[in-house]
Design a protein around this nucleic acid. Structure first.
Length: 576
RNA sequence: GACUCAAUAGCUCAGCUGGUAGAGCACAUCCCUUUUAAGGAUGGGGUCCUGGGUUCGAGUCCCAGUUGGGUCACCA
């Protein structure tokens, strides 16, 4: 019996699957398939005069077919791209038996199937490099139809564009939208370029705990989980800073980690609950050194990706060529508001906010107010890479005080395209100062600031043993990838962005139908007729329900013996 | 979290002022023995997101919900 939940095309493909088996062809063979060329290699290196690629073996997914009697053209897509394959009946079937071409190829294969092809490369009359197939092998039958996207001269027809489906079913997105693949290839290239540079300098890639008893190193609401054996709460890390600095204490002079961090906060175009940050710590350096290191790194990444330092981000062209402009936070505020906040007290800063029409909270400390002014009035102006330096001490509890001004810290953030891209310090290594700063955070927390940092006494103890002067930097990899690939949503640089679970339509189990006397084989028919639950039939008239069921039976040629009207009447009466 | 837009065939989308659900691609059957999104003909395919309401009658109007997008807020 046919499955009523399947669409017509799915049913046909399942039938093809059976037909293949009947012909002795395994639609899901176990054996490896030897591949000796990719579409990309063939298209870029084939030379008719050299007559190379005369015994190629390629494999991929059928993305389009043009069947014309005893000759056909297939678009075959592999990891690197697409190539046309020419199927000629008498090539595939040199003998009398033409089944392989007429039945297997023409009728039983579909768009979406994965096949292997052996043949020789040639150029068609129209001038397209193609593989002339001598034999083909079914490698995997696809029983769900793929969205068909066609293109001609760079113009795309019927593109698969629904964001919800693209993110939920990324595999489909990757198959039919090849440019999506490119973003993720670039993402990996970005990380590899950084990794290469760090390794060349002898810094060590390390791994630190994701499950942490104290979520430190940043201010953010963490995810909380529970360890059964220890019977204690654990937090998913919001940063790896405190662990990496412990490693600097331990004697590594340079450590870095590409770390998945988790923050239990809102989601939008630039925030996903889990995201990737690269953090690096280098001993005997300060934040001035780190600025040079950072601009060198970004220049190198841009060059590796694009071969040039200029990158188009939205409507702007951003140049990652070092050096970048350096501007203190106070100067940035002066530049964009005309107000010099140097040396102002909290109440004066609140007055400034009032004048500038910036809303602030009662609980805000001095540092947070300054940050608010900067965020409101300056941040979005910083299109070209700009280092903003010297943040107020209150908002940087892990950062060393400025060598010339104890109100400030030796911290910088790099702003690109109006957004923060990275954050770096001359690290605080004075254990007594560190403890005091943690205690100040506690006071902020008592004042009502729910994002103030937790105190990590073990980290303080580590500093008490002595940490060399160190500079550290953290960079959002998702955001960097967005910039470097011109995507304006974080969902487009994550393979599997977080989504609400798909809702399944509520449906009663067959047993519930059988309780009121309905034979099991009629349950799918009833559900197909629109009654997903027993209760939904309650107010239906027996005559109408009877007609609908018989109709479904007939329409789908199920061949079931129809129930009598009295049967149906009894069923409805049995519903409680 | 607020506001706003959207959800119709496997995919992309029409569907007016409420009156039997439409197209292109895909699919099937046949013809054609064939070259570039596309040869021709015919045909099948629908829980119009879900649940209520108004109405003689709802894809369409109203209310509530679900999911997604956008803007804002929160948030580094």
């Amino acid at each position: 019996m046919v499955n009523l939940e399947l669409s017509e095309q799915e049913i046909i493909r399942r039938q093809s699957l059976e037909e293949l088996r009947k012909l002795g062809i395994d639609p899901y063979p176990a054996a490896k398939y030897e591949v000796n060329a990719t579409s990309e290699e063939i298209l870029s290196k084939f030379d008719a005069e050299k007559n190379n690629f005369q015994e190629v073996s390629i494999a991929g997914r059928i993305m389009g077919r043009r069947i014309m009697g005893n000759a056909s053209f297939v678009e075959l897509q592999d990891d690197k791209g697409k190539i046309q394959v020419y199927f000629k009946r008498d090539n595939i079937c040199p003998d009398e038996d033409k089944t392989l071409y007429n039945t297997v190829f023409k009728k039983l294969l579909d768009i979406g199937d994965i096949i292997g092809v052996k043949g020789n490369v040639f150029i068609t009359q129209v001038g397209e490099t193609s593989v002339n197939a001598n034999e083909f092998t079914v490698l995997s039958k696809s029983i769900k139809p793929l969205p068909v996207v066609k293109e001609k001269d760079g113009k795309t027809y019927d593109a698969f564009t629904d964001p919800e489906q693209r993110y939920r079913q990324r595999y489909v997105d990757l198959i039919v939208n090849p440019q999506v693949k490119d973003v993720f290839v670039k993402r990996t290239k970005i990380m590899n370029t950084m990794r290469d540079m760090f390794n060349e300098r002898g810094y060590l890639e390390v791994e630190t705990p994701i499950l942490q008893p104290i979520p430190g190193g940043a201010t953010a609401r963490p995810f909380i989980t529970h360890h059964n054996a220890l019977d204690m709460p654990l937090y998913l890390r919001i940063a790896d800073e405190l662990y990496l600095k412990r490693l600097i204490v331990g004697g590594f002079d340079g450590v870095y980690e590409f770390s998945k961090d988790f923050r239990n906060e809102g989601m939008d175009r630039t925030h996903n609950p889990e995201f990737t940050v690269m953090e690096i710590y280098v001993a005997y350096k300060d934040y001035n050194w780190m600025m040079e290191f950072t601009e060198e790194m970004l220049e190198r990444v841009a060059l590796a990706l694009h071969g040039k330092t200029k990158v188009k981000i939205g409507e702007h062209e951003v140049d990652f060529k070092a050096p970048y402009r350096r501007l203190t936070m106070i100067d940035a505020i002066k530049e964009h508001t005309g107000i010099d906040i140097t040396g102002m007290k909290e109440d004066q800063l609140r007055q400034v906010c009032k004048e500038l029409n910036i809303e602030i909270d009662e609980t805000f400390g001095k540092g947070k107010i300054i940050d608010e002014i900067f965020g409101e009035k300056c941040e979005h102006h910083m299109i070209q890479p700009t280092f903003i330096t010297d943040y107020p001490v209150e908002m940087s509890p892990l950062c060393k005080k400025h060598r010339n001004n104890p109100e400030l810290t030796e911290r910088f953030e790099l702003m690109v395209n109006g957004k923060e891209l990275c954050n770096a310090y001359t690290e605080l290594n004075d254990p007594i100062d560190q403890l005091e700063r943690f205690q100040d955070q506690l006071k902020l927390s008592e004042k009502g600031d729910d994002e103030a940092m937790f105190i990590d006494m073990d980290f303080v103890r580590a500093l008490e043993y002595g940490m060399p002067p160190t500079s550290g930097m953290g960079m959002g990899i998702d955001r960097l990838t967005m910039f470097m690939t011109g995507q304006d949503s974080i969902q487009d640089v994550l393979f599997f962005p977080q989504m609400r679970p798909e809702k399944k339509a509520q449906k009663d189990e067959p047993a519930k139908y059988m309780e009121i006397g309905i034979p099991e084989e009629w349950v799918p028919v009833i559900q197909k007729s629109g009654f997903q639950t027993v209760n939904s039939m309650k107010n239906e008239s027996p005559g109408s329900l009877h007609q609908k069921l018989c109709g479904t039976n007939k329409k789908h040629k199920l061949g079931l013996q129809n129930p009598s009207q009295d049967d149906v009447k009894t069923w409805i009466e049995n519903i409680k």
